[in-house]
Each structure stands twice: as C-alpha cells, then as structure tokens.
Design a protein around this nucleic acid. Sequence first.
DNA 1: TGCATAGGGGATAAAATTATCCCTATGCAA
DNA 2: TTGCATAGGGATAATTTTATCCCCTATGCA
Lengths: 123, 123
Amino acid sequence: MKNRKIPLNLNCGLDLVGEVLYGKWKMRLLWFIKQGHKRPSELQRQIPDASRRVLNVQLKELEDHALISKVVYPVVPPKVEYSLTEFGESLIPVIGAIGEWGDRNEARLRSLILAKPVLDGEA
Amino acid sequence: MKNRKIPLNLNCGLDLVGEVLYGKWKMRLLWFIKQGHKRPSELQRQIPDASRRVLNVQLKELEDHALISKVVYPVVPPKVEYSLTEFGESLIPVIGAIGEWGDRNEARLRSLILAKPVLDGEA
DNA sequence: TGCATAGGGGATAAAATTATCCCTATGCAA
DNA sequence: TTGCATAGGGATAATTTTATCCCCTATGCA
C-alpha cells in the first residue's frame, strides 16, 4: 500500500473494498478489536502467527483508512488502545458473513486447500 | 498458491476463505461468471486490466478449489465455458455483501484510498 | 503458405506483501 | 546496572503474487 507502480483499479465496489481489506491480518484485526481486544499486545496474543511489526503496519493502514482509531495514553509503560470507528463497525457484518461462510464450510475448505496436486515431494 | 515456505495458518473461517478468495481477480471472476460471462474471452473483456494469462491462472485456482467448473468443448476453434459450482454459488451472497458495502461507501473509500500522506512527490 | 480464431501454458521479470532484525524510550523491580 | 514490560519504527531480506513475453494446438479459408 505504498506508491504503486501498477495503477490502482477502482472500478467497482469490490476493488474499493480490496484496497482497505486486502492484507493478511486485517480482517482478523478488525474482528478481534470488535471482540474487545484493544491493545496491541492483546492483539498480538490473539494472532501469534504475525509478528508485532506486521501487526503495527497493518493497524496503521486500517487507521489511515479510517476503519479504526487509535488512542495513545501518555503513560509509562506506554498504553495504546484501538477501537473501531463507525465506518469500521459498518464493515463488521460483512466480515462476519465471510467468516461464517468459512466456518460453515470448514471441513471442505480444509481438504480442498490441503489437496495440492500430489507433486509436492520435497524430502 | 504454490509450495509455501511460510506455513499456512488455517485457524478460523476467515483464514480458510482467504485461501480460496485471496487473489486480485478472483472475486470479480466469480461475480462475472455469475452474471453469465462464461467464456474466457468474455471474462477477459470484462476485466481488461488483467492479462489473459493471469486470468487463466486464477481461474485454475478457483477450479482447483471447486468454486467453478470448466467444460471444454472439443471443437475448433476451442470453446470453453466456466460455471459456478454449487459451492461457488454459495459464496455469491458473501461477495455480494462485500461489493455492496463497497458501493455504498464508494465516495468515501475513494477519497480515503487516494489520500496518500502527501509525500508522494515524484515529478 | 499465411492468417485468424479461441484457448493454453512455460519461463522469467517485476511488484507487492510479509517477515526478520535490531534499536529507541520510560519507570520499576531485582 | 541489568532486565522486563509496553509500544514504535527503520532497513532489509524473503516470500508470494502478478505481469509480461513468447510460443503452441488445431481448423478453415483466402
């Protein structure tokens, strides 16, 4: 989400959403924030597969896109809390729908995804 | 979607959906197929920003993930038609919801996305 | 033979996204 | 004085994803 060399294409709603939601951890971040995990360290605990750095970067993008807002408390040790903006809230049902579809089809998706064409031999 | 070095994480529904829907043109492909644009050349016309090759690759992945099915007619010149599987159909409402949210918030999204932090100077 | 059609796909380059590493700062506890 | 917790960020490497290039199939027709 830096300066792109390939021009953005923002033709339809789908493209627009992509711009703000395309990011490996973004939907999960929004979701966990919605669940009340507001502090960076909490989010990090919820999503241990991502590094702290990466979460920061994606949180920053979500913030730039006005989906979340950030409050920095001037205390030591530092304390930061994120929360959904109204705009971000409006996206929750959509994310919910995506997640539900995934949950509903979990078994099937899992097997489809793991069913790589056999030729993975590598040890 | 090749052999990954970084392990997949398939913890929740959201991750699973990501695996099959994460791809720059995938949702649009599904959407256009749903609209009745079944042949590769038609899809290409609908999505001129993507090269033929790229669409083929993504179509192949959608097919591998059982969201679409492909029929090759043994005629010359070749004729191919894609259609949504039942599984793919079940995803349409979700994609619809995403697109609607995007459409509803088009103006806002557009300005947020284009409002890069000013320091893009480049000539 | 040459071209058009409709579709495929390998190899490789480029771009975008993620991950890793290391460093900053404060105040308190050992 | 070192260590820990909390949060942030630059630089750079690794990975993944997209794009570009070029060539191939087969038939029918000029």
